[in-house]
């Protein structure tokens, strides 16, 4: 019991730390891809420190303050319901659908705060964000549904457990492919970063957020990176479980492997991001509802066929 509570307290701290670290490393990687030197790997920590130590924070009204607070609340809550490498955390109290809806709290709260700023750019950014969400949810939901139908469970812990023999990535490659395409938009990386397109809508929803607000959003984003990648890993990569023996050593190894997988997934998204231009929002929508959806439907049909007959 005490060990579990300690894990629950340790995880958010660890994840936000690792998230910031990973984002710093990714900035370095992006820089190397673009033939630059790039910032030091701990740059993200400096940024957050600076943002929290700003001598002045500018807000608009109390609804505006909700944005970053809800962003962190949503991400922290979601994180605790996702199995992380051998740690099940609270995943027995909420299944995949609960997680998918908890994941929305962050974005919706953020949208609320952004809208309250009264900046038209924020409104446009939120519109793009929601449109993009509708776009990528279509293929994502179908591909996740394929997994749920194949294993006939909605419990994340169960899905992880059932992949101990073989990853869903190998059994349902099409669904995994589509889910990774959707992951690109979930991370908010190019070519699907329309909501925060700096040159078009001046970073969209976060246009009015500076200082501690932006610092909180960066922390929320770093947790969100783990949440989104972790969800993908739990669904398609067997929860990152490498060793199935009991024992604390193996559990730590499993957890480290899970972290490594998060890093790998994020790197993949960042590498695509580094060399891509940006879609228009309606192009992004049509893209997601066309090819990924078709592939996802084929994947779903396959999963259904295998599981029913």
């Amino acid at each position: 019991m005490i060990a579990e509570i300690l894990v629950l307290i340790f995880m958010p701290v660890f994840v936000s730390f690792m998230g910031l670290l990973f984002m710093g490393i990714q900035r370095k990687i992006t820089a190397r891809v673009q033939n630059r030197i790039g910032p030091p790997f701990y740059q993200q920590f400096i940024d957050v420190m600076k943002l929290f130590s700003k001598r002045e924070n500018i807000g608009h009204n109390w609804v505006f303050d909700i944005g970053p607070i809800f962003a962190i609340v949503g991400m922290l809550t979601t994180m605790l319901f996702i199995p992380m490498g051998g740690f099940r955390l609270l995943s027995m109290d909420g299944d995949l659908i609960v997680v998918m809806y908890l994941l929305v709290i962050s974005g919706l709260g953020m949208a609320l705060g952004a809208g309250a700023s009264g900046n038209p750019n924020a409104g446009i950014g939120v519109m793009r964000g929601l449109t993009l969400m509708m776009a990528y949810e279509m293929p994502f939901v179908i591909s996740v549904l394929a997994v749920m139908v194949y294993y006939h469970t909605t419990s994340l812990a169960e899905i992880v457990g059932m992949q101990s023999g073989m990853w869903a990535l190998i059994i349902l490659p099409l669904s995994a492919l589509v889910a990774d395409m959707a992951l690109q938009a979930q991370f908010g990386k190019k070519p699907f970063d329309q909501p925060i397109a700096p040159a078009e809508v001046a970073t969209g929803p976060i246009v009015e957020y500076g200082g501690k607000y932006l610092g909180m959003l960066m922390v929320a984003h770093s947790i969100g990176m783990f949440v989104e990648a972790g969800l993908f890993i739990d669904i398609f990569l067997g929860g990152g479980l490498l060793f199935h023996q009991p024992g604390i050593i193996w559990q730590v190894f499993n957890f480290l492997f899970w972290v490594l997988l998060v890093f790998a997934l994020y790197t993949l998204a960042v590498l695509v991001n580094a060399i891509m231009p940006r879609y228009r929002i309606d192009q992004a929508f049509v893209f997601y509802w066309k090819w990924p959806t078709i592939i996802a439907i084929i994947g779903l049909a396959y999963a259904l066929g295998v599981s029913v007959w």
């Binding site: 001598r55 924070n57 009015e208 501690k212 607000y213 610092g215 909180m216 922390v219």
Partner: peptide
């Protein structure tokens, strides 16, 4: 947790609704 994070940092100055970028 989020509220603690929010209130530890310096209190924000409120600006009018048209004072946007």
């Amino acid at each position: 947790v989020a509220l603690a994070l929010f209130f530890i940092a310096k209190k924000s100055r409120k600006v009018g609704q048209t004072d946007t970028y």
